[in-house]
Structures are given as C-alpha cells and as structure tokens.
C-alpha cells in the first residue's frame, strides 16, 4: 500500500498528491511515469511523474478528474493508501544538452512540463515557459514555474488571465521575435502538441512531446500503447513516453485514445477513459 502524504486541490478539477514511494522517488527522472491502482477492483492508470523528493521519499502526481478512476482517486484523503503504485516506467527525457529551450504546457499537462523545466533550468539551460489554460480559474503551478525558468508566459483562451490566445500563438510570436530555441518541449492535450509541432516544424526546432496512450502494464507487455513514430510502430511505455513530435502520427493517437469513449458514455457506471484523459 502506498500512503497519500499530501493532497492539494489545484483547481476545481485538478488535484496534486504526494505519495510515499521511496524506491521510486530514488530513481525517478523527468519524463518517466508511474501506474497506479486506487483499489483492488480499479484500473491500472498511467500518470507522468510531476515531481519527486528523494530525501522525503515521495513522488508527486497531478491529475485531472475526467473519469471513474480519477474521480475515485480524487476522493481519497491524506493518510489513505493506494493499492498499487509502480514505477518509474518509461525512458527519462533526453534533453540532448539543449541550452535554449521553450517548454510549453497545456492545462494539466503543465504538471508534467514542470519537471522538464526544472531539470533544464537547474542544469543551466535558458528556459522560457509558456503555460496555457482555458481561463483564469484553472491556472495551476504559476508560482512553481516562476522559480524554474527565465521567462514565464501564461496564456488563457478567453483572456481572463495573462495573454489572450493559445500557446501556439505565443510560441510563434516568441520565435518570430528572434528567440533562437534549440529545443521545444510540448506537453498537454494531443491536439495542442500536434499544433505546437506544426509551429516549430518550419523553423526546424526539435520538439519533444510526451504521449499518453492507453496502456495496461507499462512494461511493454500489452502493446495497447503502440503509436506510429516516423512510420514505425513504437510502444510508448518502453520506447517513450517522449518522442520527436515532428515524427508522431497524432491523428492516429487521438483516434486510439478514443477506443473506449463511446462505451464510457454509454455505461458511465462501469468503465472509463484512461490514459487518453488523465494527462490531457
């Protein structure tokens, strides 16, 4: 059992939890993920690691309530325990020694963009962060981000906070203003990552994306998380979850993430979307 040491509501639908998992905390690197089960009858749900504290032995997860499992998880309190917490899974992000980086987070995806920004910034890179949200009331991690970047730009779709517009608008204007990024890291809903890649492609800026397909085991066993990257089939759980965004077939990923969506709507009591929604 894995105890919840801290629970913090970041906005109406986004929750942060610190889980007691010392072995995982010791090994986890930016970009890796865990799989959890809330209870004995629950699904296995993958979540990218938002932060970890090696001394305290804790792993931080941040998730949005989108379906059955995230709903159950959100109802757990400090002191409660999760049935299972496995990791760290997947490969750590390879920043390839980038010196000038733009980290782009969308919605709850900011939770996963944060450790990337933190790692890049503490290793000496110059980091700009663009964090995009629908509106002011769901802005998360502003304070945390401000400590791990040179420039933080917040955008909201409705203009209620920061700059009005999408992260892609801001990214484009930063590039056009002469910022010469040698790497972009985009983490958020699949359409956002797809459009960020379309912005960076003409400039030849390498763009890493963190994919969140449906999966069960997280060790390469089920093959459910297969994605097409550069025309080849990859298993996101062991070959990723980070990939070169310019090579990812995002349309296929969006379709595959919808595998159980109709069923979910039809039968809300007994099943849910996972993977496709939890990080999105």
């Amino acid at each position: 059992m894995y105890k919840i040491l801290k629970r913090r509501q970041l906005n109406d639908t986004v929750v942060l939890m610190e889980i007691d998992a010392p072995l995982i905390a010791k090994k986890a690197l930016a970009g890796q993920f865990i799989i959890l089960r809330v209870d004995e009858r629950g699904e296995r749900m993958p979540l990218t690691i938002a932060d970890c504290d090696r001394e305290k032995g804790t792993v931080t997860i941040i998730f949005q309530i989108v379906g059955q499992t995230t709903m159950l998880l959100s109802q757990m309190k400090e002191g409660d325990s999760l049935a299972d917490f496995v990791g760290p899974l997947g490969k750590a992000t390879d920043f390839e020694g980038a010196k000038r980086v733009c980290v782009i987070g969308g919605g709850v995806g900011c939770a996963i963009a944060y450790p990337s920004a933190k790692q890049l910034y503490t290793s000496g890179a110059k980091v700009d962060v663009i964090a995009g949200f629908r509106s002011k009331d769901i802005v998360i991690l502003e304070e945390e981000f401000s400590k791990v970047c040179d420039n933080l730009y917040i955008t909201t779709d409705d203009g209620s906070y920061g700059e009005k517009g999408f992260v892609t608008d801001k990214l484009k204007s930063l590039i056009e203003a002469g910022n010469q990024y040698d790497l972009a890291v985009a983490i958020g809903p699949v359409p956002m990552m797809k459009f960020v890649c379309e912005v960076t492609r003409p400039y030849g800026i390498k763009t890493l994306v963190s994919l969140n397909p449906i999966m069960i085991d997280g060790t390469g066993m089920c093959g459910g998380c297969r994605v097409t990257v550069g025309g080849e089939t990859k298993f996101a759980c062991v070959d990723g979850p980070d990939f070169d965004g310019h090579k990812v077939n995002f349309d296929e990923l969006m379709k595959r993430n919808g595998t159980y969506r109709a069923k979910e709507q039809h039968d809300k009591e007994h099943c849910r979307i996972y993977g496709g929604g939890a990080n999105a």
Partner: peptide, 22 residues
C-alpha cells in the same frame, strides 16, 4: 516472454486490434 509480436501489416493501428496479451 511478455513482448507481443504483431504482423506488421496495414491496419494494425486501428481501434479494435489487440495483442492477445492485452
């Protein structure tokens, strides 16, 4: 031996294609 093989034919990425493992 947990790693499932696929045939590498067209259409294996479609919704509704499973490995037996999954």
């Amino acid at each position: 031996a947990g790693l499932p093989s696929f045939m590498n034919i067209e259409g294996e990425e479609l919704i509704g294609v499973y490995s037996a493992n999954e």
